Simulated scan of single mutants.
Amino acid sequence: MKTITILFIQLFMVLFASAQTRYYDKTKTFYENGYTYQSDQLGMVTLYNKENKFTYVDQIDRYTGKYISIEENMSDQLEKDSWTKPKCISIVNSCFSDTEKNRVRETFIFITMYINPDNGSVAEVEFSFPCTNPFATIPVSVYRKIELGLKKEIRFVPTEEGKRRNYILVYWKHHVK
């Protein structure tokens, strides 16, 4: 009986350990079901759709060609509303299974959206988290689901200032609930 108990405990530990696979422990390209994601790992993981055009691209004023300063970036680039932030949070939270929610509940992820300044749509989404963070155990398919949900359901209204940029940056530190 003692042997069976020990074997059962070891089997459980192996299953638990395999569920904790870290997908983003090095720079890597993921080829999934019709989409490709890039994971750049430099202590912090930056995960994004390989088709993204704004990842690592400076924000510029489309009319002058000059880089946007930190002070300029503090200006209102989007009209204020009361629904987009709660909707973004809801979309992100709904993409995680209960098991994944439990695994990441004590940690956070940075979510960045690049907004099209012409129509206010979400053009691109990027995720950042420490490589030792439990978010590193979440498969690419979940991040893809988040990206598609945000692109489908979120729209902003750019201000005149926002329309001058090559993209408008929206980001937040997210705790899954």
Rank of each mutant, 00 (worst) to 15 (best):
M1N: 07
T5D: 04
F8V: 07
I9A: 09
I9N: 02
I9H: 00
F12A: 15
M13F: 13
A17R: 03
A17K: 04
A19H: 08
Q20R: 11
T21K: 12
R22L: 10
K26E: 10
T27F: 02
K28C: 03
Y31Q: 05
Y35C: 07
Y37N: 02
S39F: 05
D40M: 05
Q41V: 15
L42R: 12
L42P: 02
T46Q: 04
N52K: 00
K53F: 11
T55I: 15
T55D: 12
Y56T: 11
D58A: 13
Q59Y: 06
T64R: 13
K66N: 14
Y67F: 12
S69L: 12
S69D: 10
M74N: 12
D76E: 15
Q77P: 00
L78K: 07
K80T: 07
D81I: 01
S82F: 12
T84C: 06
I89C: 06
S90R: 09
I91S: 12
I91W: 11
I91E: 12
C95S: 15
C95F: 10
F96V: 02
S97G: 09
T99Y: 10
T99S: 11
E100V: 00
E100Y: 05
K101A: 10
K101W: 10
N102P: 00
R105C: 12
T107M: 04
T107N: 13
T107P: 00
I109S: 04
I109H: 00
T112K: 01
I115L: 09
I115G: 02
P117V: 05
S121A: 12
S121H: 07
S121Y: 03
E124D: 11
F129A: 02
N133Q: 02
P134V: 11
F135N: 04
A136I: 09
P139R: 05
V140R: 01
V142G: 06
Y143A: 06
G149P: 03
K151T: 01
V157I: 13
V157P: 00
P158D: 06
P158Y: 08
E161Q: 10
G162K: 02
N166K: 03
L169M: 14
L169F: 14
Y171R: 04
W172T: 03
W172H: 03
H174C: 07
H175L: 06
K177N: 12
K177V: 05
